[in-house]
Design a binder for these strands. Structure first.
Length: 678
DNA sequence: GAGCACTGC
């Protein structure tokens, strides 16, 4: 294995030399299994080197001869770029040559690229133009145990492709608990009724390979009796560790921003009270809502003799890796998204974690030396936890999924071979919406051109419909901007502690009477004109610069899609001062109604809203312009239940008559529980 | 009066 010694001399000291990674000694057996079986399930912990080493093994074993490519997917963009750069370094090539990567807005590949890293969502997109993914000899699906929507769809597609391409090799990297499930999925017949299509025996399909685990042991400790307040218990535990345990930083898993801000403050106060008996302690927050700059503090080395304590959301479970963590405190909870097919309402609530999550969290302790994990629950409670969380596909709005599957030529989506089939109510709800939007015809076939175009646009179906109607409302340029801004998901504004008033003042300056969508349009226009797309402008106005530049990219991409559909975007109208701004505003509101009619609500005398079905009490989110303002009918981008209340966000005033005008069938009076507009 | 985390040529 001389090549590893050679390679290792080029690796920065920061990196663990390849030859020392546990995986190196499995090289031959791994290659044998991949050669022999179409499907290989690889079990390996973080740090085992599977993501970086397996592609190199495959390359040196000749899997890219005759011009074929090895594809490696990751669920997240950052993972794609970091792993690709690392492998390019180890191979000793420039990134984008032999080793490259591709993520949305960034394609760092060339005709020479033989090992290609990409997001699993992007590989699905490639299947739209190359249904058999024929350029790949091997596809490795990394972090499959996370069970993201894209990963699940990709696995279903790969199972289908395998029947037509028996020579294709599929490698799935998984955590221990899920490995059997993946293997069963690929070995079971995709259609139990159908006669066996070939002579392939189940044992010939795949094999599980376990790579040696981590190097450092982790002591797991449980509470003797349940904690009645895990937040206070977490803070106590931090201070106990600080007083009693040896050197090393602490990572605490909590559920959200509110808890984390409280914990950070309480910890500093209590450490100050304890005085100088112990060394200094530095509590830091970590959650996605922080600006990149604020997030970076958690990676800084604390001053000599100071112990760093990071209070984090689930972001530190898989997405962000911090070195130097020796102690993990696990609250046992996570905030999870769910979707109710009955009401169409998404919710975000704290739920107990799974066993898989618990072990992933514990594993964050032992990366550099032996560690300890303090679980703020009893061992009995742990035994009662589910093995894994329900996959995302089973708790999401499936409209985008169905659109994508149909575009891939899978017409019978109900019979699609899902790793875990979603509940049928989710399916029917999504089909109903797609039909109402005109994406599907009465035979549930994708319509031409509308349905196909909606599937290709990288925005959710209601916004896709809105965009594709915009030309007829003469507000295409404006709607492109609104689509880009809403797809940022609320990260437009930022503030530091105590900065909130300033942010709200700034936000008020961009406000437009008719609602949030027009306000977002205003913000974007100011950023690209007055603001010159500069970060200073954003900083002054409490705008998130990263989000704003992202909006520019998304807008550009959506515009290119439309141009590919031969829809001309006239930008001259958008930039010049409008003689009749109110007329354009009305066109925009009408256009929004044509796509968001299913998200309509009417204000009640008490100031809350009711959706058209009548049942649910909706509150304007405090971040909305419509919060505490009078309106009659509105459409909204998103509805979410958190804690006790159900909020609507990104709200725009409309006229009741428009609903009947643009969605006559949806609002047709048929029976007593219909969506009657009164 | 307030939202976990991802993502799409």
């Amino acid at each position: 294995m001389a090549e590893f010694d050679l390679d290792s001399s080029f690796i920065p000291a920061l990196h663990k030399p390849a030859a020392l990674l546990p995986i190196a000694k499995h090289r031959e057996s791994l290659l044998y299994v991949i050669e022999t079986y179409p499907v290989t399930i690889v079990i390996g912990q973080t740090g085992s080197g599977k993501s970086t080493q397996i592609p190199q093994f495959l390359k040196s074993a000749g899997w890219c001869s005759d011009g074929k490519t090895i594809g490696v997917t990751q669920p997240r963009r950052v993972a794609v770029t970091t792993v690709a750069v690392r492998v390019a370094e180890e191979v000793g090539c420039e990134i984008g040559k032999e080793v490259g990567y591709s993520i949305r807005f960034e394609d760092i590949t060339s005709s020479a690229t033989r090992v290609k890293f990409l997001t699993d969502g992007l590989l699905i997109r490639e299947a739209l133009v190359d249904p058999l993914l024929s350029r790949y000899s091997v596809i490795m699906v990394d972090e499959a145990h996370e069970r993201s929507i894209s990963t699940d769809i990709l696995l279903g597609l790969l199972k289908k492709i395998r029947k037509k391409r028996p020579e294709l090799r599929i490698i799935i990297s998984s955590a221990t608990l899920q490995a059997e499930g993946f293997l069963k999925f690929f070995t079971r017949s995709s259609d139990e009724q159908a006669p066996k299509e070939d002579g392939e025996k189940k044992d010939d399909v795949g094999k599980i390979v376990s790579l040696e685990g981590r190097t450092y042991p982790i002591d797991v400790l449980y509470l003797e009796s349940p904690a009645d307040n895990y937040l206070e218990r977490a803070i106590d535990t931090v201070l106990d560790i600080h007083a009693q345990e040896g050197e090393g930083d602490i990572l605490v898993f909590l559920t959200g921003r509110e808890e984390i801000d409280h914990a950070v403050q309480a910890t500093s106060e209590r450490a100050a009270q304890a005085g100088s008996r112990y060394g200094a302690i530095q509590p830091l927050p970590l959650y996605a809502g922080l600006s990149t700059e604020q997030q970076m503090y958690v990676f800084d080395k604390p001053p000599e003799g100071t112990r760093k304590v990071i209070f984090s959301t689930n972001i530190a479970e898989a997405s962000v890796t911090i070195d130097g963590i020796v102690y993990v405190i696990d609250s046992g909870f996570v905030k999870l998204r769910a979707y109710s097919p009955m009401t169409g309402i998404e919710s975000l609530t704290a739920t107990p974690i799974s066993k898989a999550s618990a072990s992933q969290r514990a594993g964050r302790a032992g990366r550099t030396k032996p560690g300890k994990c303090f679980r703020l629950y009893t061992e009995q409670h742990f035994e009662g936890l589910a093995d894994a969380n329900a996959p995302e596909l089973q708790r999401s709005n499936l409209a985008p999924v169905i659109l994508q599957l149909k575009a891939l030529g899978i017409d019978n989506v109900v019979r699609f071979d899902f790793l875990s089939p979603p509940p049928s109510e989710l399916m029917s709800k999504a089909l109903e919406l797609l039909y109402a939007l005109g994406a599907l015809d009465e035979y549930a076939k994708l319509t031409r051109p509308l349905g196909f175009r909606m599937a290709e646009l990288a925005v959710e179906p209601m916004m896709a419909k809105t965009l594709l109607s915009a030309q007829s409302f003469s507000c295409l340029s404006e709607m492109l901007t609104i689509a880009a801004m809403t797809s940022l998901g609320g990260s437009v504004w930022f503030y530091h502690d105590g900065d909130q008033k300033r942010m709200e003042n700034s936000r008020r300056k961009f406000a437009v009477e008719e609602g949030d969508h027009l306000t977002l349009l205003n913000v974007y226009t100011a950023f690209v004109t007055r603001g010159n797309k500069e970060s200073r402008f954003c900083h002054d106005k409490n705008l998130n610069y990263k989000s704003m530049t992202r909006a520019v990219s998304i807008r550009g991409q959506l515009k290119r899609y439309l141009e590919r559909f031969n829809i001309v975007v006239d930008e001259s109208l958008a930039s010049q001062p409008k003689g009749d701004a109110s007329k354009t505003a009305e066109q925009i509101r009408r256009c929004l109604t044509s796509g968001y009619f299913a998200h309509a609500a009417r204000m009640q005398p008490d100031g809350t809203y009711r959706n058209v079905a009548g049942g649910t009490v909706l509150h304007a989110h405090p971040s909305s312009l419509m919060f505490n303002r009078k309106a009659d009918w509105v459409v909204f981008h998103e509805v979410m239940e958190t804690g006790e209340k159900t909020f609507i966000r990104d709200i725009t005033k409309i006229e009741k008559g428009w609903l009947l005008e643009y969605a006559p069938e949806f609002y047709k009076v048929t029976d007593t529980r219909s969506r009657e507009v009164v």
